[in-house]
Design a protein around this nucleic acid. Sequence first.
DNA 1: AATTTATAAGACAGCGTTGTCACTTATAGC
DNA 2: GCTATAAGTGACAACGCTGTCTTATAAATT
Lengths: 338, 338
Amino acid sequence: MTKRASTIQDVADKAKVSIKTVSRVINNEPNVAIKTVKKVETAIKQLEYQPNAFAQSLARSKPKIISLIYDTPSPNYISHIMEGVLSFCYKAGYEVIIHPLRFNEIGMLRSAEQFIKKSRLAGLIVTPPHSDNIEFIKLIEKLDLPKVLISSGLDLDQSDCIKTNDEEISIEMTNYLIKSGHRKIAFIKGHPTHLSVNQRFIGFQKAMKDANINIDNSLVENGLNSLLSGEQCAERLLNLSNRPTAIFASNDEMAAGVIKVAYKKGIRIPDDLSVVGFDDSPMTEMITPPLTTVRQPLDAIGEKSAQKLIDKLEDRDISHESIIKSEIIFRESVTRLH
Amino acid sequence: MTKRASTIQDVADKAKVSIKTVSRVINNEPNVAIKTVKKVETAIKQLEYQPNAFAQSLARSKPKIISLIYDTPSPNYISHIMEGVLSFCYKAGYEVIIHPLRFNEIGMLRSAEQFIKKSRLAGLIVTPPHSDNIEFIKLIEKLDLPKVLISSGLDLDQSDCIKTNDEEISIEMTNYLIKSGHRKIAFIKGHPTHLSVNQRFIGFQKAMKDANINIDNSLVENGLNSLLSGEQCAERLLNLSNRPTAIFASNDEMAAGVIKVAYKKGIRIPDDLSVVGFDDSPMTEMITPPLTTVRQPLDAIGEKSAQKLIDKLEDRDISHESIIKSEIIFRESVTRLH
DNA sequence: AATTTATAAGACAGCGTTGTCACTTATAGC
DNA sequence: GCTATAAGTGACAACGCTGTCTTATAAATT
């Protein structure tokens, strides 16, 4: 008894048809007699046959393989995006290669190019911060590869992007703080190269302007998306004589930093200070108090990206909605001011 | 100008040698004149040639492709393991396919079999909880596929496993609590099907026995690895008249649940109650107080797994150390009792 | 110098599919 | 009932590489 996996030839022999006919059945091609289809399907089942994906890729002009390119954002972010991408691709019969690419590494572009060529990819899904990297986008275009960029801050063809409504939801969040009676609202910006994160600040500004509240520049801090940078910003903010009553951090980690510092200083949350974050990372429920934040449907973003890319690859209509809406998750870190 | 990626034939033409010679250069085979190697390498560089991984896989008997099988454990866990696996495989010239597999889904085994056959994998790296699933392991063995199981609680050949010293480090952690003066120590067990997590309880028991401390059964709770289950266990534990002075939770999420409940009840940590967790997930630094916990070097585990698998595939010696040591990360959630 | 051996390079088949084209057999049209 | 068309099937090359075998050349041995 051989352990060799069965091939299309085995199926053909068993069903007493040609290889090509088996191939037709596998790929749902027309013009095969129903009787033949049945015969072949039985043989496939008996042999537990599965087509060899690499041979298929080689024989087809376009291999059914795409790649998800990421750097090292939060594990939570990437693993949920991945989940969505994988689940859609699996259904659509595509293989996915997950590929990490270090943003600042020298030779990053070259290694990316090597990877893409070697794998003969059909298309690419790119997550931030790479989706903001013009050099990288140019490379993809040079290689003439279909792509979908997630949350790119770049001004690109709509058909290449999946966006979130960061600006809009930040307006909503800011309005929520304003409606809760807050006027002295501080904002902690995100990492400067992370363009889409900066949409959040723009939303904040707009909402403040619409409410006719001046933004005090000393209440705007530049964070780096990390816990530590959140702590540092909070340190400055909370030492101010004109201390804010609410802080809007561009992501949850920085918000957690704020809460830590506040705790250390004996500032109670939400009683003395309201804090909101962005991302709804798992720890928002674990800290005290649970953090009010914005949830992006990451799985859905992943799925939509995959769908969009595959639709492109198969020359299908790509009129799908490309903006995926986030929602505010109200928890316990905000108080209403009297 | 065609966008077609260059092939080995193009390189051969340009270097004025045969295809086979180019192949030899690519694969570092012996018996090629230095002059020829140089010619070929120049041609490769000029054409920016990269071998087609799928054609290689097809032509070789063993494709250089492995898969990392996971369920849906914490994003943090899987993304760090993945990091290690990818980085090693990348260096070794292997491609990795990340494959999610839902533990409880009906037809899971069949879909796993399909996937493995279709991709003609060279080998498999399996994370918990699949590494504890006998049916799944049997399937892999039936398919005659080399494998490395991460943190399997099953009694398997040493050469197939990468283990962590959960029991040993739990003994250490327990001893630390004991040395800090704690006697009434509660333990929250992990998910029952997650065998390796249960090693943690065994370590706890041993340490208590060695210290001649009786384990009060009412201080042993059955958790489910989730925040919520941690809260539920804590609720019971902290309502006890004979309340513990320290709680050892089998993972960080449950420890966070304990801290939340304690906070609600006005029990101060660490002053009134010491809490330790396990895993060193990112949020341990974000909660107040920062949690004392056990760090498993996940990236290293991933790397070692990949190394072990690839060594097997290439018939190399696999005498590597297979137990990867964790360490206690001391933070602020434990107090010394006077 | 003649013969063995090592080194270098190529020819050719094969990996497991799909695409193209040609062929045979039904079905339809008049 | 005879041709035009469609439906069903297969032969064969191709995809881009590697393995095996062969041949040509250089080096080593006697």
